[in-house]
Every structure is written in C-alpha cells, then in structure tokens.
Design a protein around this nucleic acid. Structure first.
Lengths: 142, 142
DNA sequence: CTTAGTGCAAAGGCTTTGCAGCAAT
DNA sequence: ATTGCTGCAAAGCCTTTGCACTAAG
C-alpha cells in the first residue's frame, strides 16, 4: 500500500521522500479531515525534524495532482481528505468535526445548471452540509 | 431601502449605527462577493475612521442574523454575499472571482441523504462549483 | 443612564516565502 | 551531476482580541 503510493508519486513525476510517504501513510484511511497543522503535530513524534513547510508543500503537491482533496470549509484553514471519490461533507458548527457524506442513489451529474455561466469549464463541485451533529444537538449556543 | 435595513436591524435588536448602514449600503445589490477587507477599503474614502474591527464585527453580526451569507470558498478568507436567497456559487480558480449560480427547476430539498448522520440537525447547505470562467478558459496554468 | 458598538493597536492563527544544504534520481 | 525537496526562520495575510471611549436607546 506504501508501494501503491510510491508508484503513484513516481507516475506523477514527484520524488519519493520519507516525508511524503509518512504524510501519505498518516492520511491513509483517515476520515477526520485533518488540517496541515494537525498532520504536522501527529507526525512530529515520529519525525521530529519534519517541518511545517514540508507538510504544506507536500499537501499542496498532492492536492494539485488529485491524490487528496483540499476542503475550504471553516474560517481560517484548510482541511484535507484522502478520499478522492465522489462524496460530500458535513461540518458540525458546534464541535467543528467534518464528516463524510456519501450521495445516495445513482452517480450525480456534475454539471452547472443549464444557462449558468456559458462558456465556463467546470472543474469540480463541492457540497457542504452545515449541521449540529447528533452529539452536539442541544448544546447549540442560544 | 435604507429604511428597510434599519427596520431589520431594530427587529434583530441590533443598534443602528452609521457604520452598519454604510456597510449594508455598500453590500446592497453587490454581486462581487467582497471580503471584509475589500469592504473596508471601499468605504475608507467616505468613512476615513471606519475601523477594520468594526467591519468584521458588523459582518459577523449580520451573518449570524441571516442578513448575509458567509462564504468559505478560498484559502485564507471569507467572502460575503448580501443575497440570502437559495443559490449556489461558482469560483473561478484562475481569476478568483465568485459568481452566483441560481438553481434551475423547482426549489431544491435541503436535506441530508437518507441514512447519513442520523440524529443530526441540518442548518444549511452550500454548494460551490470550481470553474475556469469564460474569460479565463485557455489561460489555465499548463 | 446603560451598555452595545467603535476605533486603535497589538496579538493570533494559518499559510507562504527565501534560501542554503541535502538527498532522490 | 542535477535539481527537486527539506528544514528553518522570517514574513504575510486575514482575523480576532483588549480596552478605553463614544454614542444609541
């Protein structure tokens, strides 16, 4: 599985470095949608000299190449999702957690509404549900 | 129309101040989705002492009270939309502009997919189309 | 008179940048 | 041997905070 990711990096023309593999391994199977700083913090123990800049560089490179999703959901930061399959996200405004939401039914057509923005090229679509999650219902402020 | 907005503020229990009215007036009918700093810059001429903190405070108060939408679309910042009707947005990754996209057909059901996140309360849904707009097609990097 | 709102400046969080040295190819 | 990547520190951008003062009600 580290094999796969190495192969993928090579295929994209990116160099295979211990840092990149560590970041990919940390993200693999993770559904908590960590931010760059969270990833750095997690890896700090095992890789004490791993720099924040490297984490940012790596995440940017991986996102640009479609190996992970960059999610602008909250105010000041980005969160990352290693699952690049077609799905949405739910953000709990109370606890701040981000959940995956898989669409029901047949695959959705990713297209702009007819008539909107003629001539534009659609790159991707992102949908976010703002929620108060099960654990947080009732704790809402007010 | 400044009447309407004053009434709305009063109704919400917010004080009517020149700063707030200026911000509301600046936003009214604007479809460019400015950020807080852009709004501050626009108003700086007419209100030289208007502080950035006031702009942020005001926008936060208005957003909390549903008078405008806060859009976390780009990396480091929020953009504001005075149109609170049901619609989506398209973000051109090349020029950075944000466009309104009005849904076609009947009003959409705002609900989580069946089975997803049982027990959560849905607060709102936001959809963003990432695009290369008409003017920017062809200028994409690579 | 009360207290929400304002302005100013400082601090804070997240991200980017510059650059010398290192390591992957 | 190349040059992409790393680590470190500094800088940058956007936003928040603290607090004394002002003005809305």
């Amino acid at each position: 599985m580290i094999e796969q990711q190495s192969a993928k990096l090579k295929e994209l023309g990116l160099r295979i470095t211990p840092q990149r593999l560590a970041i990919l391994a940390a993200l693999d199977g993770d559904t908590s949608h960590p931010s760059a700083m969270e990833i750095h913090r997690r890896l700090a123990e095992g890789y004490p000299t791993l720099s924040l800049a490297t984490v940012y560089n790596t995440l940017e490179a991986l996102a640009e190449n479609g190996m992970l999703l960059e999610l602008p959901i909250t105010k000041g930061k980005l969160n990352y999702d290693p699952d690049t399959s077609d799905h949405d996200h739910a953000y709990c405004s109370v606890c701040g957690r981000i959940f995956d939401v898989f669409p029901e039914g047949e695959p959705r057509g990713a297209s702009l509404p007819a008539g909107a923005l003629e001539g534009a090229r659609l790159l991707s679509v992102r949908r976010v549900y703002y929620i108060a999650c099960k654990e947080c219902r009732g704790k809402e402020d007010l």
